[in-house]
Protein backbone atom coordinates (compact mmCIF):
# COMPACT_ATOMS: atom_id res chain seq x y z
CA UNK A 1 0.00 0.00 0.00
CA UNK A 2 2.69 2.47 1.07
CA UNK A 3 6.31 1.72 0.43
CA UNK A 4 9.05 4.03 1.62
CA UNK A 5 12.58 3.30 0.55
CA UNK A 6 15.75 4.85 1.90
CA UNK A 7 14.31 8.30 2.40
CA UNK A 8 16.74 11.17 2.94
CA UNK A 9 16.00 14.84 3.49
CA UNK A 10 18.41 17.66 4.22
CA UNK A 11 17.57 21.24 5.09
CA UNK A 12 20.77 23.00 4.13
CA UNK A 13 23.39 21.47 6.42
CA UNK A 14 20.88 19.77 8.65
CA UNK A 15 20.32 16.14 7.73
CA UNK A 16 16.81 15.70 9.13
CA UNK A 17 15.89 12.29 7.71
CA UNK A 18 18.67 9.78 7.19
CA UNK A 19 17.50 6.73 5.35
CA UNK A 20 14.04 5.76 6.56
CA UNK A 21 12.46 2.68 4.98
CA UNK A 22 9.27 0.88 5.89
CA UNK A 23 6.14 -0.61 4.40
CA UNK A 24 2.53 -0.23 5.40
CA UNK A 25 0.11 -2.95 4.38
CA UNK A 26 -3.50 -2.38 3.40
CA UNK A 27 -5.84 -1.97 6.36
CA UNK A 28 -3.05 -1.49 8.85
CA UNK A 29 -2.85 1.22 11.50
CA UNK A 30 0.74 2.29 11.91
CA UNK A 31 1.94 4.39 14.83
CA UNK A 32 4.75 6.82 14.22
CA UNK A 33 6.75 7.69 17.29
CA UNK A 34 9.80 9.74 18.03
CA UNK A 35 11.06 12.58 20.19
CA UNK A 36 10.73 16.19 19.05
CA UNK A 37 12.89 16.92 16.01
CA UNK A 38 13.34 13.25 15.14
CA UNK A 39 11.97 13.81 11.63
CA UNK A 40 8.38 12.60 12.10
CA UNK A 41 6.64 15.57 10.53
CA UNK A 42 9.21 15.82 7.76
CA UNK A 43 8.66 12.18 6.85
CA UNK A 44 4.88 12.63 6.88
CA UNK A 45 5.18 15.77 4.74
CA UNK A 46 7.24 13.82 2.22
CA UNK A 47 4.81 10.87 2.10
CA UNK A 48 1.92 13.26 1.49
CA UNK A 49 3.76 15.00 -1.34
CA UNK A 50 4.12 18.39 0.35
CA UNK A 51 7.91 18.30 0.58
CA UNK A 52 10.38 16.75 -1.80
CA UNK A 53 12.95 14.25 -0.63
CA UNK A 54 16.68 14.66 -1.14
CA UNK A 55 16.84 11.01 -2.20
CA UNK A 56 14.79 7.85 -1.87
CA UNK A 57 11.32 6.97 -3.06
CA UNK A 58 7.74 6.92 -1.85
CA UNK A 59 5.31 4.62 -3.63
CA UNK A 60 1.64 4.87 -2.81
CA UNK A 61 -0.72 2.22 -4.16
CA UNK A 62 1.80 1.56 -6.93
CA UNK A 63 2.14 5.24 -7.88
CA UNK A 64 5.42 7.05 -7.32
CA UNK A 65 4.71 10.37 -5.57
CA UNK A 66 7.09 12.25 -7.89
CA UNK A 67 6.24 10.59 -11.20
CA UNK A 68 2.46 10.27 -10.83
CA UNK A 69 1.62 12.88 -8.19
CA UNK A 70 -2.06 13.25 -9.05
CA UNK A 71 -2.78 9.51 -8.89
CA UNK A 72 -0.84 9.13 -5.66
CA UNK A 73 -2.42 12.16 -4.00
CA UNK A 74 -5.93 10.96 -4.81
CA UNK A 75 -5.33 8.04 -2.41
CA UNK A 76 -4.21 10.21 0.52
CA UNK A 77 -5.99 12.32 3.09
CA UNK A 78 -3.50 14.35 5.09
CA UNK A 79 -3.86 16.19 8.37
CA UNK A 80 -0.64 18.15 8.94
CA UNK A 81 0.61 19.33 12.33
CA UNK A 82 -1.05 22.71 11.75
CA UNK A 83 -4.43 22.10 10.09
CA UNK A 84 -4.53 23.99 6.76
CA UNK A 85 -7.61 26.07 7.51
CA UNK A 86 -8.84 29.30 5.94
CA UNK A 87 -9.97 31.25 8.97
CA UNK A 88 -12.14 33.60 6.90
CA UNK A 89 -14.43 30.85 5.59
CA UNK A 90 -17.27 28.98 7.26
CA UNK A 91 -16.78 25.26 7.91
CA UNK A 92 -19.12 24.27 5.09
CA UNK A 93 -17.62 26.72 2.58
CA UNK A 94 -14.17 25.44 3.45
CA UNK A 95 -15.07 21.77 3.09
CA UNK A 96 -16.79 22.52 -0.23
CA UNK A 97 -13.59 24.24 -1.37
CA UNK A 98 -11.59 21.14 -0.39
CA UNK A 99 -14.12 19.03 -2.36
CA UNK A 100 -13.33 21.21 -5.39
CA UNK A 101 -9.59 20.74 -4.91
CA UNK A 102 -9.96 16.99 -4.49
CA UNK A 103 -12.26 16.83 -7.50
CA UNK A 104 -15.16 15.17 -5.71
CA UNK A 105 -18.03 14.81 -8.23
CA UNK A 106 -20.74 17.44 -7.66
CA UNK A 107 -23.56 14.92 -7.20
CA UNK A 108 -21.76 13.07 -4.37
CA UNK A 109 -20.77 16.17 -2.45
CA UNK A 110 -23.83 16.76 -0.32
CA UNK A 111 -24.06 13.18 0.90
CA UNK A 112 -20.36 12.89 1.56
CA UNK A 113 -20.09 16.20 3.42
CA UNK A 114 -23.13 15.39 5.58
CA UNK A 115 -21.56 12.05 6.45
CA UNK A 116 -18.20 13.59 7.34
CA UNK A 117 -19.77 16.40 9.36
CA UNK A 118 -21.68 13.96 11.53
CA UNK A 119 -18.72 11.59 11.77
CA UNK A 120 -16.40 14.20 13.32
CA UNK A 121 -19.35 15.88 15.07
CA UNK A 122 -19.13 19.37 13.63
CA UNK A 123 -22.62 19.52 12.10
CA UNK A 124 -23.72 22.17 14.61
CA UNK A 125 -20.85 24.53 13.73
CA UNK A 126 -21.09 24.01 9.95
CA UNK A 127 -22.16 27.60 9.33
CA UNK A 128 -19.72 29.30 11.67
CA UNK A 129 -16.48 31.00 10.66
CA UNK A 130 -13.50 28.73 11.23
CA UNK A 131 -11.59 31.64 12.80
CA UNK A 132 -14.17 31.81 15.59
CA UNK A 133 -14.00 28.11 16.51
CA UNK A 134 -12.11 26.70 19.50
CA UNK A 135 -8.89 24.78 18.99
CA UNK A 136 -10.59 21.41 19.40
CA UNK A 137 -13.18 22.23 16.75
CA UNK A 138 -10.49 23.52 14.39
CA UNK A 139 -8.64 20.24 14.82
CA UNK A 140 -11.83 18.35 13.94
CA UNK A 141 -12.38 20.48 10.86
CA UNK A 142 -8.80 19.53 9.94
CA UNK A 143 -9.67 15.84 10.31
CA UNK A 144 -12.84 16.40 8.26
CA UNK A 145 -10.70 17.98 5.54
CA UNK A 146 -8.52 14.86 5.41
CA UNK A 147 -11.61 12.65 5.07
CA UNK A 148 -13.01 14.57 2.08
CA UNK A 149 -12.80 12.51 -1.10
CA UNK A 150 -12.92 9.23 0.84
CA UNK A 151 -9.18 8.47 0.47
CA UNK A 152 -7.90 4.93 1.09
CA UNK A 153 -4.96 6.19 3.13
CA UNK A 154 -5.09 8.62 6.03
CA UNK A 155 -1.98 10.33 7.34
CA UNK A 156 -2.66 12.06 10.65
CA UNK A 157 0.04 14.14 12.29
CA UNK A 158 -0.89 14.37 15.96
CA UNK A 159 -4.64 14.20 15.46
CA UNK A 160 -5.61 14.62 19.12
CA UNK A 161 -3.50 17.65 19.95
CA UNK A 162 -5.51 20.35 21.70
CA UNK A 163 -8.55 18.21 22.38
CA UNK A 164 -10.10 17.60 25.79
CA UNK A 165 -10.18 14.02 27.19
CA UNK A 166 -13.74 13.40 25.98
CA UNK A 167 -12.92 14.55 22.48
CA UNK A 168 -9.75 12.46 22.48
CA UNK A 169 -11.83 9.38 23.25
CA UNK A 170 -14.25 10.28 20.47
CA UNK A 171 -11.48 10.80 17.94
CA UNK A 172 -9.91 7.52 19.04
CA UNK A 173 -13.21 5.76 18.47
CA UNK A 174 -13.52 7.47 15.10
CA UNK A 175 -10.06 6.33 14.07
CA UNK A 176 -10.75 2.75 15.15
CA UNK A 177 -13.93 2.91 13.07
CA UNK A 178 -12.06 4.26 10.08
CA UNK A 179 -9.34 1.64 10.51
CA UNK A 180 -11.77 -1.06 9.37
CA UNK A 181 -11.77 0.29 5.83
CA UNK A 182 -8.66 2.45 5.57
CA UNK A 183 -4.92 2.34 5.98
CA UNK A 184 -3.81 4.83 8.61
CA UNK A 185 -0.52 6.34 9.73
CA UNK A 186 -0.70 8.26 13.02
CA UNK A 187 2.02 10.18 14.75
CA UNK A 188 1.57 11.15 18.35
CA UNK A 189 3.39 12.09 21.50
CA UNK A 190 0.79 10.34 23.61
CA UNK A 191 2.05 6.79 23.85
CA UNK A 192 -1.05 5.30 25.39
CA UNK A 193 -2.92 6.51 22.36
CA UNK A 194 -0.61 4.71 19.97
CA UNK A 195 -0.84 1.63 22.17
CA UNK A 196 -4.63 1.76 22.02
CA UNK A 197 -5.01 2.32 18.30
CA UNK A 198 -2.09 0.91 16.38
CA UNK A 199 -1.19 -2.55 15.09
CA UNK A 200 2.44 -1.71 14.54
CA UNK A 201 4.82 1.01 15.66
CA UNK A 202 7.71 2.69 13.92
CA UNK A 203 9.99 4.50 16.35
CA UNK A 204 12.36 6.97 14.75
CA UNK A 205 15.21 8.80 16.36
CA UNK A 206 17.73 11.22 14.85
CA UNK A 207 16.16 10.70 11.42
CA UNK A 208 16.57 6.92 11.44
CA UNK A 209 14.26 4.02 12.15
CA UNK A 210 15.17 2.89 15.67
CA UNK A 211 12.61 0.10 15.91
CA UNK A 212 9.73 -1.25 13.89
CA UNK A 213 7.52 -3.97 15.31
CA UNK A 214 4.22 -4.79 16.95
CA UNK A 215 3.86 -3.38 20.45
CA UNK A 216 3.90 -6.77 22.25
CA UNK A 217 6.97 -7.90 20.34
CA UNK A 218 8.72 -4.66 21.14
CA UNK A 219 8.23 -5.14 24.87
CA UNK A 220 9.29 -8.74 24.76
CA UNK A 221 12.39 -7.81 22.79
CA UNK A 222 13.39 -5.32 25.41
CA UNK A 223 13.29 -7.81 28.33
CA UNK A 224 14.21 -11.40 27.71
CA UNK A 225 12.21 -12.44 30.75
CA UNK A 226 9.18 -11.16 32.53
CA UNK A 227 8.84 -9.28 35.78
CA UNK A 228 6.12 -9.70 38.40
CA UNK A 229 5.27 -7.43 41.29
CA UNK A 230 4.02 -8.95 44.49
CA UNK A 231 2.77 -7.02 47.51
CA UNK A 232 2.03 -8.97 50.68
CA UNK A 233 1.90 -8.97 54.47
CA UNK A 234 4.33 -11.20 56.34
CA UNK A 235 7.95 -11.88 57.23
CA UNK A 236 9.93 -10.89 54.19
CA UNK A 237 12.88 -13.29 54.59
CA UNK A 238 10.65 -16.34 54.96
CA UNK A 239 8.64 -15.35 51.90
CA UNK A 240 11.69 -14.85 49.72
CA UNK A 241 13.25 -18.13 50.78
CA UNK A 242 10.02 -19.99 50.21
CA UNK A 243 9.43 -18.44 46.78
CA UNK A 244 12.99 -19.19 45.63
CA UNK A 245 12.19 -22.88 45.77
CA UNK A 246 9.55 -22.53 43.03
CA UNK A 247 10.95 -23.62 39.67
CA UNK A 248 11.01 -20.80 37.07
CA UNK A 249 11.69 -18.00 39.54
CA UNK A 250 15.15 -16.76 38.70
CA UNK A 251 15.62 -13.91 41.16
CA UNK A 252 13.77 -11.83 43.71
CA UNK A 253 14.52 -8.34 44.91
CA UNK A 254 12.90 -6.15 47.50
CA UNK A 255 11.34 -2.91 46.32
CA UNK A 256 9.53 -1.17 49.16
CA UNK A 257 8.89 -2.02 52.78
CA UNK A 258 6.09 -0.35 54.63
CA UNK A 259 6.15 0.34 58.40
CA UNK A 260 2.98 -1.66 58.96
CA UNK A 261 4.69 -4.79 57.67
CA UNK A 262 3.57 -4.63 54.05
CA UNK A 263 6.30 -5.55 51.59
CA UNK A 264 6.65 -5.20 47.87
CA UNK A 265 8.96 -7.50 45.99
CA UNK A 266 9.96 -7.85 42.37
CA UNK A 267 10.18 -11.36 40.98
CA UNK A 268 12.02 -12.04 37.75
CA UNK A 269 10.58 -15.05 36.04
CA UNK A 270 12.11 -17.16 33.31
CA UNK A 271 9.13 -18.52 31.41
CA UNK A 272 11.27 -20.80 29.28
CA UNK A 273 12.08 -22.95 32.36
CA UNK A 274 8.61 -24.37 32.80
CA UNK A 275 5.21 -22.82 32.17
CA UNK A 276 3.40 -20.18 34.11
CA UNK A 277 4.67 -19.82 37.68
CA UNK A 278 2.01 -17.41 38.87
CA UNK A 279 -0.38 -20.10 40.10
CA UNK A 280 2.43 -21.78 42.05
CA UNK A 281 3.36 -18.48 43.68
CA UNK A 282 -0.25 -17.96 44.73
CA UNK A 283 -0.63 -21.45 46.26
CA UNK A 284 2.70 -21.11 48.00
CA UNK A 285 1.64 -17.83 49.62
CA UNK A 286 -1.80 -19.19 50.55
CA UNK A 287 -0.37 -22.35 52.10
CA UNK A 288 1.87 -20.30 54.39
CA UNK A 289 -0.88 -17.85 55.30
CA UNK A 290 0.73 -14.75 53.83
CA UNK A 291 -2.05 -12.58 52.40
CA UNK A 292 -1.41 -11.24 48.87
CA UNK A 293 -2.43 -7.58 48.58
CA UNK A 294 -1.35 -6.97 45.02
CA UNK A 295 -0.01 -9.19 42.29
CA UNK A 296 0.60 -7.94 38.76
CA UNK A 297 2.86 -8.17 35.77
CA UNK A 298 5.58 -5.54 35.40
CA UNK A 299 6.04 -5.81 31.63
CA UNK A 300 7.40 -2.62 30.16
CA UNK A 301 4.84 -0.17 28.80
CA UNK A 302 5.34 1.42 25.42
CA UNK A 303 6.60 4.41 27.34
CA UNK A 304 9.51 2.44 28.79
CA UNK A 305 10.25 0.85 25.44
CA UNK A 306 10.22 4.27 23.82
CA UNK A 307 12.52 5.78 26.43
CA UNK A 308 15.00 2.94 26.31
CA UNK A 309 15.14 2.97 22.51
CA UNK A 310 15.37 6.70 22.01
CA UNK A 311 17.83 7.40 24.78
CA UNK A 312 20.18 4.59 23.78
Amino acid sequence: MIEIKDLHKSYGDKHAVRGISFKVEKGEVLGFLGPNGAGKSTTMNIISGYLSMTSGSVIINGHDILDEPEEAKKCIGYLPELPPLYLDMTVLEYLTFVCDLKKVPKDQRKVQLAKILSMVKITDVADRLIGNLSKGYKQRVGIAQALVGDPEILILDEPTVGLDPNQILEIRKLISKLAKTKTIIISSHILSEIQAMCDRVVIINHGKVAAIDTITDLSARLTGNSKLLLCFKGAIKDVINSLRTIPGVSSISERVTNESGIHEIEIIVDYSAGGDVRANIFYNMAKNGWPILEFRSLDPTLEEVFLSITSA
Binding site: S48, E70, K73, P84, L101, G149
Partner: peptide
Protein backbone atom coordinates in the same frame (compact mmCIF):
# COMPACT_ATOMS: atom_id res chain seq x y z
CA UNK B 1 2.33 31.83 6.42
CA UNK B 2 -0.87 30.09 7.50
CA UNK B 3 0.18 26.68 6.16
CA UNK B 4 -2.84 26.45 3.85
CA UNK B 5 -0.53 25.97 0.87
CA UNK B 6 -0.31 22.33 2.03
CA UNK B 7 -3.79 21.91 0.52
CA UNK B 8 -2.46 22.70 -2.94
CA UNK B 9 0.43 20.27 -2.65
CA UNK B 10 -1.41 17.32 -1.11
CA UNK B 11 -4.56 17.34 -3.24
CA UNK B 12 -4.69 16.36 -6.92
CA UNK B 13 -5.13 20.01 -7.98
CA UNK B 14 -2.76 21.37 -10.62
Amino acid sequence: RRGTEILFYTTPVN
